[in-house]
Amino acid sequence: MKWFKSLSVAALAIAMVATSVSAAGAASSLKGKIVINGSSALLPLTLQAANEFKKLNPKVKISASAAGSITGPQSVRKGIADIGAVDWDASQDVPGFKKFDGQVAHKVAIIPFAAVVNKNVKVDDLSTKQLQDIFSGKVTNWKDVGGDDADIIVVNRAFGSGTRVNFQMKALQGTDFISKGNNYKEVKSSGDMKTAVETTPNAIGYIDLVYVTSNMKAMKINKVAPTEANVVNGTYKVWGYGYYMTKGEPNEVTKAFIEYIQSAKFQNGSLKKLKFIPISAVK
Rank of each mutant, 00 (worst) to 15 (best):
A18T: 04
T19N: 14
A23Y: 11
A23T: 05
G25K: 09
A26C: 03
A26L: 08
A26Q: 11
A27L: 13
A27D: 13
S28L: 06
G32R: 02
G32A: 07
G32N: 06
G32K: 03
K33L: 06
I34Y: 05
I34A: 03
V35P: 05
G38D: 09
S39G: 09
S39E: 11
A41C: 14
L43A: 14
P44W: 01
L45K: 01
L47N: 07
A49S: 08
A50C: 08
A50I: 12
F53W: 02
N57V: 04
K59S: 10
K61M: 07
K61G: 06
K61Y: 06
I62R: 00
S63Q: 11
A64Q: 01
A64C: 07
S65E: 14
A66C: 07
A67R: 09
A67K: 07
G68A: 04
S69T: 12
T71K: 10
T71N: 11
G72R: 01
G72D: 07
P73W: 02
Q74M: 14
S75L: 03
V76S: 04
V76E: 03
R77C: 11
R77E: 14
K78H: 08
G79I: 12
I80K: 10
I80Y: 09
A81E: 12
G84R: 06
G84K: 04
G84C: 08
A85V: 13
V86A: 09
D87H: 08
D89M: 09
D89L: 09
D89T: 04
D89Y: 13
A90H: 04
S91V: 02
Q92N: 10
D93N: 14
V94S: 11
V94T: 13
V94E: 15
P95F: 09
F97M: 03
F97N: 00
K98W: 05
K99W: 04
F100C: 12
F100S: 10
F100P: 02
D101E: 15
D101F: 13
G102E: 08
G102R: 02
Q103P: 05
Q103K: 01
Q103C: 08
V104R: 14
A105V: 09
H106F: 15
H106E: 12
H106M: 12
H106L: 12
V108Q: 02
V108D: 01
V108C: 01
A109C: 05
I110V: 13
I110M: 02
I111W: 01
I111D: 01
I111L: 04
